[in-house]
């Protein structure tokens, strides 16, 4: 159960986020593009009854993750969608977090908050929850539309859609914890954006590599989800133990 102070601060944070046009644009536009419009275009472009086979020469040896494409032409859609959708889950909270963490530090309003009867950890907890409260319904909701359409058109198994759903949730958790970590290090939004790119890029690239290396898109999605959850634990540990919240006040 959430502490009383966290609930009060969460209401304040969410209210401010919803009133912030820049934050709302980031929270809605990016996932709309990455997790709905582009995936929908790909899903609707494929004819599941007469899928177009890829002309792969028989003597070409594909990595295990791409081998599925030779057997099932519809796998191409899954191979492209998986990293794209994980990208939406990674980027949305990270960008929204800049407004909620860094702007408070830049504008020195954090001084007002720490003068109130709350712990610094509660302030950060409320901010993290506000980020998730905004980005999770948007990202998971948009994916639910795409996932449902994929199921109805036979482009993915129920196991694949569930694995993807878990991957999106894990990417949100990872991105939010990374946003907290970056906000402890960066003093301004520009530095935060650069650091976000530095931290998230390897994972974005990694998701493509996993898709190529791990056989089966369902298993690959699960591996990516596992990687994000492990990353969440590591980043939170670094933020709490190594960097600590005191940096926010310097």
């Amino acid at each position: 159960m959430l502490a009383r102070e966290v609930k009060i601060l969460f209401r304040k944070e969410l209210g401010q986020l919803l009133r912030n046009k820049g934050a709302m644009l980031t929270a809605l536009f990016l996932p709309l593009l990455l997790m709905l419009i582009i995936p929908l275009a790909q899903v609707l472009a494929v004819n599941p009854d007469h899928p177009k086979e890829l002309p792969i020469p028989p003597d070409v040896s594909l990595p295990p993750g791409l081998a599925e494409v030779g057997k099932d032409p519809l796998a191409t859609v899954r191979l492209l969608l998986t990293p794209l959708i994980s990208m939406g889950g990674l980027l949305t909270p990270a960008l929204t977090a800049s407004y909620i963490f860094i702007s408070e530090r830049e504008s020195r309003t954090l001084e007002l908050l720490v003068a109130l009867p709350v712990r610094v950890g509660q302030i950060l907890q409320a901010k993290l929850l506000a980020i998730l409260a905004l980005s999770a319904p948007v990202c998971l909701g948009l994916f639910a539309i795409v996932g449902g359409l994929m199921l109805s058109r036979g482009l993915g198994s129920p196991g694949y859609v569930v694995a993807m759903f878990i991957m999106v949730a894990a990417s949100l958790a990872f991105s939010s914890s990374t946003a907290l970590f970056v906000s402890l290090l960066a003093r301004d939004i520009r530095t935060a954006s650069n650091l976000n790119g530095l931290v998230l890029s390897p994972f974005l690239l990694g998701s493509f590599i996993v898709m190529a290396v791990v056989p089966g898109t369902t298993l690959a999605s699960a591996v990516i989800a596992g990687g994000y959850l492990l990353g969440t634990a590591v980043v939170l540990l670094l933020a709490l133990r190594v960097v600590t919240f005191e940096r926010m006040l310097r």
Binding site: Q16, R19, N20, T109, E111, L112, A115, L116, V118
Partner: peptide, 23 residues
Amino acid sequence: PQLPGMYRDLSVSDYLQLVKDLY
């Protein structure tokens, strides 16, 4: 606090309500 920043998106009454809720 010393020279705190002020919220652009919270009114005076919003802020005092927040303070009252926390106290």
